[in-house]
Design a protein around this nucleic acid. Structure first.
Lengths: 157, 157
DNA sequence: ATCAATGCAAATAATTTGCAAAAAG
DNA sequence: CTTTTTGCAAATTATTTGCATTGAT
């Protein structure tokens, strides 16, 4: 994905901080650079580790205190894939209606968008008396390699 | 919903236990009766409390050891609504493709099914190289009462 | 009898928080 | 300077687990 978009997400978050009279500390800088410097979903623990590569002084507490700000800004989305820890998705601002399909075995995650599904969701919500705000759709399945071989090699299918 | 279906779900689980050479203890009985005696989603904590109304000897450990059996049997589904604890849905066997819409404010949950969405999910999965196994779709929104009044009364909208 | 299942209490593990010191504005 | 933010370590909370005992088959 083009770097320009990521720069924008970072800038948007800076504006979000300023608007809320929150300070741009070096630790927050490192965390923001990390979060918006990847396309991947990450965990709090990974965000800490990678942020520390940029700034040794980043602590676990600060990561956990920054994550709610990231999600509150709407630029990062908290995801639950049934683990006992959460994942965070930094591609949310650009693709607010994207969905996930996860291989049951190798845990490969693919993102996709569907206009048709989004439209149906909106219709159904109205019919049930709700106005839709957000949606999350997760499909689990087996990827092709798994189907052919009976089991897929972790990290490779 | 008709009582007959619930009896069936309970019986299916008993068969599941027997097939796996697992024993039908009085504690498991109480937990099973509770789980399949409600239409509501419940938490581990609620399952413990309600099961204890039937059998004082049910312990928290046994509830936590029984829940994986319930989900493994396919009769109960683990749900994540973004809280730090999980919900369990006992209506899964009868409606394996049902979805949830949750009011952001009062946390009212409505279930629904959609053939069209299910079909689209299956198509997209194939196109992406997966064979679909399960899906979960959660929509969050505001319910009518909220829209009209600006805020909905908890438990009542 | 045998071996799975239980309750209890201690252990985990992710996340949260109180507080005194450090740093942004 | 003032107020926010930080790191640290202790606290919290849902869930898991070791172990001696109980109970289903």
């Amino acid at each position: 994905m083009p770097v320009i978009e990521k720069t924008t997400a970072k800038q948007k978050f800076m504006e979000f901080l300023t608007k809320k009279n929150l300070r741009v500390t070096s630790q927050r800088q490192a965390i923001i650079d990390t979060a918006f410097g990847t396309d991947e979903h990450f965990t709090a623990d990974q965000l800490l580790e990678w942020s520390r590569d940029r700034d040794k002084s980043v602590s676990r507490a600060t990561v956990y205190r920054t994550l709610p700000l990231l999600t509150e800004s709407g630029l990062v989305r908290e995801m639950d894939f049934g683990k006992n820890y959460k994942f965070y998705d930094p591609n949310y601002a650009e693709h607010p209606n994207h969905n996930h399909i996860i291989c049951q075995d190798c845990e490969k995650i693919v993102e996709f968008e569907s206009e048709k599904i989004a439209k149906l969701e909106d219709e159904i919500s109205h019919r049930l008396g709700f106005s839709m705000k957000t949606q999350r759709l997760q499909i689990t399945g087996n990827c092709e390699e798994l189907k052919k071989l009976g089991a897929c090699k972790k990290k490779s299918c």
